[in-house]
Amino acid sequence: MTSSAAPQPVHASPSAVEPGLDAGWIARTVAVALDEDLGTAPGRDVTTQATIPASATGTADLVAREAGTVAGLVVVAETLAQSAARLGLPVPDVTFHAQDGDAVGPGTLLARLSGPTQVLLVAERTMLNLASRASGVATATAAFARELAGTGAQVLDTRKTTPGLRALDKYAVRAGGGTNKRMGLYDVAMVKDNHVVAAGSLRAAVEAVRATFPDVLVQVEADTTAQAMEALDAGADFLLLDNMPTPVLAATVAAVRERQGRDGVPEHVELEATGNLTLARAREVAGTGVDHLSVGALTHSAPILDLALDLHPAALR
Results as ranks from 00 to 15, higher is better:
residue 7 P to T: 11
residue 9 P to F: 06
residue 10 V to K: 14
residue 15 S to C: 08
residue 21 L to H: 10
residue 23 A to S: 13
residue 25 W to P: 00
residue 27 A to P: 12
residue 30 V to W: 08
residue 32 V to S: 13
residue 34 L to I: 05
residue 42 P to L: 14
residue 46 V to G: 07
residue 47 T to S: 11
residue 55 S to D: 13
residue 65 R to H: 15
residue 68 G to S: 05
residue 69 T to K: 09
residue 71 A to C: 05
residue 74 V to F: 13
residue 77 A to K: 11
residue 79 T to F: 09
residue 81 A to M: 12
residue 83 S to I: 01
residue 91 V to G: 11
residue 92 P to G: 12
residue 96 F to I: 06
residue 97 H to R: 05
residue 100 D to C: 07
residue 100 D to I: 03
residue 102 D to L: 15
residue 102 D to K: 15
residue 112 R to I: 13
residue 113 L to W: 10
residue 113 L to E: 04
residue 113 L to P: 07
residue 115 G to Q: 04
residue 119 V to K: 03
residue 130 L to Y: 01
residue 133 R to D: 07
residue 134 A to W: 01
residue 135 S to W: 02
residue 138 A to M: 09
residue 138 A to W: 08
residue 140 A to H: 08
residue 142 A to W: 13
residue 145 A to R: 02
residue 146 R to Q: 15
residue 146 R to A: 10
residue 149 A to Q: 07
residue 149 A to F: 02
residue 150 G to I: 08
residue 157 D to H: 03
residue 157 D to M: 00
residue 157 D to W: 13
residue 161 T to E: 00
residue 169 D to L: 12
residue 175 A to V: 03
residue 182 R to L: 03
residue 182 R to Q: 03
residue 183 M to P: 15
residue 189 A to V: 03
residue 194 N to G: 14
residue 197 V to H: 06
residue 199 A to K: 01
residue 201 S to R: 03
residue 209 V to F: 01
residue 212 T to K: 15
residue 217 L to K: 12
residue 218 V to E: 11
residue 227 Q to M: 09
residue 228 A to V: 06
residue 231 A to C: 08
residue 239 L to R: 15
residue 239 L to H: 04
residue 241 L to M: 08
residue 249 L to R: 09
residue 251 A to G: 12
residue 261 G to D: 10
residue 261 G to C: 06
residue 264 G to V: 00
residue 265 V to G: 12
residue 268 H to W: 08
residue 273 A to N: 11
residue 276 N to Y: 12
residue 280 A to Y: 04
residue 283 R to M: 15
residue 293 L to M: 09
residue 295 V to G: 01
residue 302 A to R: 00
residue 309 L to T: 08
residue 311 L to V: 11
residue 312 H to G: 04
residue 317 R to P: 00
